[in-house]
Amino acid sequence: MDKKLLRKLVLASYTKGNLDEDKVAKIVKYLKKSELREYIKALKLFEMQNTVLVSVTTDKTKDLKKHFEKIFFPKKVYVEYDKSLLAGIKIADFDNIYELNLKNKLENLIKHISE
């Protein structure tokens, strides 16, 4: 299937930024088995590219979510509480990870010592 057409189908599967199951069901009816595989793969990739996961060491996640939604608009933002970071924050925006936490600093120090 043509990449442009695939992209159009993926964009057409969404309503107001959320995956619309009815639209997906309609699209799927017209696809062959191999095209369906490509479509599902493209949907998964689109979801990954448009999702931001923010890990923080505080459980006050609601305010933080609004704040990051403004920064990463129009992507979907999920904020989770992760105490293993010790202190700081970790933002995963598809293949870019922004680290500003104690856990990461300590891991870097350990790596430096072992080298």
């Binding site: 598809f94 293949d95 870019n96 990870i97 922004y98 680290e99 500003l100 990461n104 870097n108």
Partner: peptide, 27 residues
């Protein structure tokens, strides 16, 4: 050991066939 933000570019394994790994990300 300061307050600088560290940015990493990562990927995720999609397929592993005969020693060749296909991954998404790593743009």
């Amino acid at each position: 050991f300061d307050q600088r933000l560290e940015v990493k570019n990562v990927g995720r394994v999609v397929k592993n066939t005969d020693g060749v790994i296909v991954a998404t990300g790593l743009s």
